[in-house]
């Protein structure tokens, strides 16, 4: 298969203020079963032979579970199939078509080079509450914390998030609500997450704001590009948990302690 590629190039190291631009490449004789990343590998090998600068892009596991690859393909994060970029195959495109490849677009995801962006903002949101406190030591009794199957399913449906950031890139507001909602849902429904239930949601929402993510206007685009098909129900859960944490009356002793 043959394609014309419009690929975003930015920051070749010579100019700190580089605003970026599209460059056109022609690729020929591409295997239909190659992924879009393998197609970029072939292009990079050619660029190396021609002594030209390679196209920078992120990838790691290449089997759709790590969440490292992050391409906006023809305007849609991860491309047309609602899978990760690495699981997007060239057979999904029409022979001879022009494919536009860009990095994830959000003010919170600064471009590092070409198609690679810094998604550290999501890590800092996790640091603000996406964890549980647990005692180490001998293995606990397996039945000490019963979890009902419905609860387990709900937690797992949210825990499946791979943190790729496509939700942020798809959101017209650049919001990270699906990502944060998934993490809050995952931990707040499980017994292990209860001690930090309120501080988790408040901390993560504050960190989202501090990073400069936008707010949710219930467009639902995040869920439509999510390779793990996480539903916007997790955003409802995030909103609910935040409201409850903020409107709950504190016991008097706690108030007295916090003012000391």
């Amino acid at each position: 298969m043959n394609f014309t590629l419009e690929i975003w190039r930015q920051f070749d190291g010579s100019d700190e203020e580089d605003k970026g631009r599209f460059e056109t490449f022609k690729v020929t004789d591409i295997d239909p079963d190659a992924s879009i990343l393998e197609m970029l590998d072939q292009l990079n090998e050619r660029l190396s032979r021609e002594k030209k600068r390679n196209i920078a892009f992120d990838s790691d596991c290449r089997e759709g579970i790590c969440g490292t690859c992050a391409l906006v393909i023809d305007g849609t994060p991860h491309g047309p199939q609602q899978v990760t970029s690495c699981q997007t195959y060239m057979r999904d495109f029409i022979d001879g078509q022009t494919i536009t490849i860009e990095p994830f677009r959000a003010s919170t995801f600064p471009v590092v080079r070409d198609l690679a962006v810094d998604r550290g903002a999501l890590d800092r949101v996790i640091q603000a509450g996406g964890y549980i406190s647990t005692t180490t030591g001998p293995q606990p009794d397996p039945n000490a914390m019963p979890v009902a199957p419905e609860v387990q399913e709900k937690a797992m449906d949210a825990a499946i998030c791979i943190g790729c950031g496509a939700c942020v890139a798809a959101c017209p507001n650049g919001a990270a609500m699906l990502f944060t909602g998934a993490k809050v849902t995952h931990l707040n429904v499980l017994p292990q997450g209860q001690p930090e239930r309120e501080s988790r949601v408040v901390g993560m929402v504050e960190q989202m704001d501090a990073e400069g993510f936008g707010g949710c206007t219930n467009y639902g685009e995040c869920s439509r590009v999510c390779p793990q098909e996480i539903s916007i129900d997790v955003i409802g859960m995030l909103n609910r948990e935040y409201r409850k944490a903020k409107t709950k009356r504190k016991p008097k002793t706690e108030k007295a302690m916090s003012t000391q």
Partner: peptide, 28 residues
């Protein structure tokens, strides 16, 4: 205030492509 924040959260000239959001939600 939210609209201002939302605009700042996206780089200029890169409106997100419409994938499935409703006309009503876009016209709010």
């Amino acid at each position: 205030q939210l609209v201002k924040r939302n605009r700042e959260a996206r780089p200029a000239n890169f409106p997100a492509k419409r994938i499935g959001r409703s006309v009503e939600s876009m016209a709010m």
